[in-house]
């Protein structure tokens, strides 16, 4: 087997596997007959279908009926009435907008920051393992504790952040009280929490890179920047794409940290859609509208995920 491969030859070698079906030619190998593929897929499919099918049917069903609080079952069929209510609910539309703003800013920030830190953590020295482990902590702190600690840090009266700003003559800044800054704070807190995930995945991706490629690049006299741009990033595209998509699906469902840090306020400034649905359902007991909203969010998420999925495949194939 050749020890030195260029990235482009690697990409070509891995190429055929990407086709989504159709007969694939592979060099003289009887690569798994389709039956084996299904055997590999069965545990995941059984688990997902078994656990999700009924809840999804239930949710759609509730969204089309009058919810009966005395049994927690769908009651009379009301057609699209719940959807009408929801579409005309300015609060719901506002929460979708808020979610959009949050996602568009938070996701790229976390991804770029995460990969940058992963590169820094990739330099070999003795403390690297400890730093990598410590970097997991923000993800592990319970949201309600994390939210509370951040509220303390950002408080204008007793908060350390404003105290430090005060020493250089700035502030006090209403980090959570001001509608715009509240969104900034939420993004900061969420990025603090989830950038470590990107670091975790990116580190593994960087580590899995074959070093022979680098030797080849080095012997070709490529600069660090050229190596990064033409070797590392193209090889990392699948991992970057996967990290982005996983983070996207996590971020869409975020509500715990918003609940703990800002309660969605002031007004609706940080009222992300899953928080809105949670409060409608669990606090307001409006399970009919909550289910309609959940269904709408599910459909929107699936559509966007589909495009992201296509985009990631396009990017993977480009390099």
């Amino acid at each position: 087997m050749s020890a030195v491969r260029t990235p482009s030859s690697r990409a070509r070698a891995a190429g055929p596997a990407r086709g989504s079906g159709g007969p694939l030619r592979r060099r003289g190998l009887r690569l798994g007959e389709p039956g084996t593929a299904w055997v590999f897929l069965t545990p995941a499919i059984v688990l997902l279908a078994g656990m999700l099918l009924y809840p999804i049917i239930y949710t759609v069903w509730v969204s089309l009926s009058d919810f009966d609080l005395s049994t927690f079952q769908p009651g009379d069929w009301v057609g699209l009435k719940n959807y009408e209510t929801v579409i005309n609910d300015p609060g719901f539309l506002e929460s979708l907008k808020v979610t959009g703003i949050y996602l568009v800013i938070a996701l790229p920030v976390q991804l770029v920051l995460g990969f940058a830190i992963a590169f820094l953590l990739n330099v070999e020295w003795r403390g690297r393992g400890v730093l990598r482990a410590l970097f997991l902590i923000p993800m592990v702190v319970a949201p309600v504790v994390a939210g509370g600690v951040w509220r303390m840090l950002l408080d204008p009266l007793w908060g350390v952040v404003n105290y430090a700003l005060g020493l250089v003559g700035v502030g006090p800044v209403e980090w959570i009280g001001d509608p715009t800054l509240a969104m900034v704070s939420l993004i900061v807190i969420d990025s603090w929490r989830w950038t470590p995930f990107v670091v975790l995945v990116a580190s593994a991706g960087i580590m899995a890179l074959p070093s022979d490629v680098y030797e080849a690049a080095k012997s070709d006299g490529a600069s660090r920047w050229q190596t990064l741009r033409h070797v590392t990033v193209p090889l990392l595209v699948p991992v970057i794409a996967a990290a982005f998509i996983v983070r996207w699906l996590g971020a869409v469902k975020m509500f715990d940290i918003a609940l703990a840090a800002t309660k969605g306020g002031p007004g609706q400034a940080t009222d992300v859609v899953n928080l809105y649905i949670y409060e409608k359902g669990f606090r307001g007991l409006e399970f009919g509208s909550a289910s309609s909203m959940a269904t709408i969010v599910l459909v929107i998420t699936m559509i966007i995920t589909y495009f992201l999925f296509r985009l990631s495949r396009y990017l993977e194939n480009r390099w």
Partner: peptide, 15 residues
């Protein structure tokens, strides 16, 4: 106090 707009149960109590 400054920041009071975010006060829930805990903050006014501590203040």
């Amino acid at each position: 106090p400054p920041g009071a707009a975010t006060y829930q149960f805990n903050e006014p109590l501590e203040a």
